[in-house]
Design a protein around this nucleic acid. Sequence first.
DNA 1: ATTAAATTAAACTAAAATCGTAAATAATTA
DNA 2: TAATTATTTACGATTTTAGTTTAATTTAAT
Lengths: 209, 209
Amino acid sequence: MTTEAPQDNKKYQDLITTARSLLFKHGIKRVTIEEICEKANVSKVTFYKYFHNKDDLVMKIMEDWVDEGVREFLAIRDENIPFMDKMLKLIRMKLATAQEYSHEFIDELMGTNENLKQFYQSATMKTLELVTDFFKEAQEEGQFRKTVPPEFYIYLIEHISEMMNDERLKTIISDPHDRFQEIMNIIFFGFNECDKTIEYDKLMEGRVS
Amino acid sequence: MTTEAPQDNKKYQDLITTARSLLFKHGIKRVTIEEICEKANVSKVTFYKYFHNKDDLVMKIMEDWVDEGVREFLAIRDENIPFMDKMLKLIRMKLATAQEYSHEFIDELMGTNENLKQFYQSATMKTLELVTDFFKEAQEEGQFRKTVPPEFYIYLIEHISEMMNDERLKTIISDPHDRFQEIMNIIFFGFNECDKTIEYDKLMEGRVS
DNA sequence: ATTAAATTAAACTAAAATCGTAAATAATTA
DNA sequence: TAATTATTTACGATTTTAGTTTAATTTAAT
């Protein structure tokens, strides 16, 4: 008689995972509910048992996704490793998720629907606070220059993958290794001459690219 | 009074290029004619001036694309460089185009429409003959083991990019450099110990990845 | 085996999207 | 200016999609 929570339901999970990969790849408007149901081997009736409509589905996907991200972040934050290694792992994480979803998906999330937009913004807010606190603490410990606003570091971190895929930058530095090296060097050490570097290979180690 | 050939028309070209990138990315059924027109800044009426319908558009895209491929191939074939270097360039070309289109596009090309299917098959036939001749000649010159059917080499070449992106293989050899190295070594030298290798970096040089 | 719940396929309606065209209007070119 | 060409707007016809209903089937628990 115990009514199962939807998170533990197989059909629900099938729908979430199939929908996620489809929507992340093609964006929201290109994918139909029927297609999701077919690919997930779930009938349309069952879909409407768990979701009111497509927007509702998207919100639940985002909830899952954000929670996942927060969990990953907290795990890294609380690891017992040097600060620089944590930074590496955070960047790696960002690059990993950035490859998952298409630009189109985020654009649609922000553009068309007002509910989704609000939800997405409040979700990013929540995670942003977490990360900001992390940076502020690191700054107080002397890991960063104190004159840099932590929000600016977050901005930079979030734009690394964008820079890596920027067509203009690609023509300037075609080799991805070199490109990454240069971006990281600028972010961490600025234009000053410096003997420290962040290795692309170290960042990518163990990653299935 | 000279009626301009459509190939030289700006609007026509805009339609072809925008349609190509959209269709290659999302497949045929996900993209609407109106979307193409909007993105290309061409009115729908103008679209129907140049194309009967979506299938007609796809065929003309394919024609362009195949011609382009044949030209590239012939250019490489007739270059005055060692055979191995030609091989490298051909593989590079294959990898480049494979990143352009999605699996979905080719699937739809083969699956839904009978006209497109026929057209695609005859087009690949035509190019396959060219490449086969190239390999046969190389074989007669002693560049390959004579007991290998050239068709099998073509098959292998065409599957390099697939292997590079194969999830199973990725877990076995996660580093793309290593993965590519191993694939190339197998294809060119088999399982025999051999001091020759094909360098990933050499293959990728000058490519904007 | 019996019962209750979950799932499904199929049919269906209403709304929305898309196609393709025809006319009126603006822009180019001769 | 006149003739040709490109674009906008509007529109009807068709197709697709969303969401619901019903009846049949599967699944799981008792």
